[in-house]
């Protein structure tokens, strides 16, 4: 299961998640969502530490982070 899920049709493409990702693991997509906007995507899913900063900064609550999944994977 993925550690992070982007609800891309909710995204308005502000880029706050990309700005605050401490691993610099996010980028804006080339594809567009229903509203015609770029949305964030992971560069390398293995790099994600599930810290949740993208979730905390997302104004549209379009990101979900599953920290328990990340912890289970680590063990």
């Amino acid at each position: 299961m993925k550690k992070i899920h982007f609800e891309k049709h909710r995204c308005k493409g502000c880029g706050l998640c990309v700005l605050f990702c401490p691993q610099k693991n996010l980028r804006m997509s080339e594809d567009l969502n229903d509203q015609g906007l770029s949305y964030p995507e992971e560069i390398d899913p293995a790099c994600c530490t599930a810290c949740g900063l993208c979730f905390r900064m997302c104004p549209d609550v379009a990101i979900e982070v599953y920290q328990q999944v990340a912890k289970d994977k680590k063990q």
Binding site: K12, G13, C14, G15, L16, R56, C58, P59, D60, V61
Partner: peptide, 13 residues
């Protein structure tokens, strides 16, 4: 519901 706020607005947070 999807909010009507502009991209990058702090209201959503």
């Amino acid at each position: 519901a999807q909010t009507h706020y502009c991209p990058g607005c702090g209201h959503g947070i």
